[in-house]
Each structure stands twice: as structure tokens, then as C-alpha cells.
Design a protein around this nucleic acid. Sequence first.
DNA 1: ATGGTGGCGCGGCCA
Length: 255
Amino acid sequence: MKIATWNVNSLNVRLPHVLDWLATQAPDVLALQETKLTDDKFPVEALAAAGYRALFAGQKTYNGVALLTREAATDPLTDIPDLDDPDRRILIATVGGVRVVNLYVVNGQEVGSEKYAYKLEWLRAVTAHVARELEQHRDLVVVGDFNITPDDRDVHDPDAWRERILCSTPEREALGRLLALGLTDAFRLFEQAPASFSWWDYRQGAFRRNLGLRIDLVLPTTALGGRCTGCTVDTAPRRLERPSDHAPVVAEFDL
DNA sequence: ATGGTGGCGCGGCCA
């Protein structure tokens, strides 16, 4: 079972890239973030023609998440207890016996800002909910754009980013509390090239210079992690014309 | 350095 996550930064703009990528990689599940589409505009037919069903929770201009699956997904959830959030950032569903939690974590803008406080509160509520999901589902994977670098290996210039947004200790501790529920970072189960990233700023040729961060993650339960046979960042779509600023991350499971 | 780029949508916000 191949599970992937990709922040597409507008599914309107990126649909051709997504369709090409689905045809090339043929994942069983592709979790999308930042679709920036209301549900009435979701490209259901184009994806169906490509062999994928879709669940989606969108809004205008900002945010928006989706799950593209070969087989039907069941028991979807877009709103969780203790989080009264108009932002469409969460989509949970069961696919092939695996509970898939797709997150577009709040960016937080700047350490110490209101948005930063909201990011930490949002992560607290999501972590509490994932704990509840784990009581119901043995096989679970949390995927998405976490807007957090797990550690300094995931930062092109750790000193320049020290305690800045996406890299601060409270953010990493919040991610640590999610992992402490019994999840593992699939990417780090395998030997990886140094300076492996999943996001590069559009500005100043950051991708060409590989000035990136690894903020897009696949976090299976430790048991499911034991059946993970590989996890890679596919930088190919980031090289295309008019790319997303994120690259897809793919994990394969022996399921 | 408060910019640099991109998306949305047409000014300013968000990333």
C-alpha cells in the first residue's frame, strides 16, 4: 500500500501535475493540502477518469484538504471535538483498513504571534483526537503538511532558523507529543541523503540551491512502521513549470 | 534589509 502526501498550493493550478503524478506513481492514497477550492469546484470527474475517488473539505482561497483513493474511503471526519475551527485543515478516513489522518497544520507565521499560539493550541486538540482515533483503529497513519521541522537535519541552515517559525522548540515539542502517542517518522526509518527537504521557498532560487525544509511527514503507528518498506521525497514535480512549493512524500507499506 | 515569489482575486492577506 502506497500512501503519499502533497501540499499542492491550489489544486486548480496544480491539477495537471497531480494527474501526471498519479499516473506515474499510482499511489493507493494521496493526501492533498492547500487545495484552495470550495467543494462545489472540486475536480471530481477529472480524478475519477484517472481512477481515483475523492473526499474533500475545502474553502475559498485558503486551506482545504482532500484524500484521493483508488478504493472507497469510509467513515470520514472533518471536524474534531474541542476544535471549533472554520479552517478546512483536517480530513480523516479509513482506506483499506488503515485510518488515514490528513493534516494541514497551521503555519503560525511568527514565533510569539497570535497565529503561533493558535498553532500550538490546534496541535494540542489534534493530538488529543488522534489519541482517541488510536483507541478505535489499530493501523493508523498521520500525514500532511506539518509546518514543523522534526529536527535540525530537516533544515538547510539550522543556525539561521534557530527558534524561528517551523523550527522552534515548542513546535517540535508539540510534534513530539503527537509522536509519543506511538507514531514514528517513516522518513527516518530509512537511510536518507543529507539535506533532504520537502518544501522550498519560491523566492531567490531556493529550490535550485536546495535551501529547503522537511515539513511534510508520514507518521505511521510504530507497528505499521515495522511494515514500511520505504519513504522518499519525490522532487520531480518541484522541477516542473509552475510547481507547488512542496514536493510529494511517498511511503510504501507491506499491507 | 521587510524584500524576495506565488495564489487568490483585484487590495491585501497568507504562505
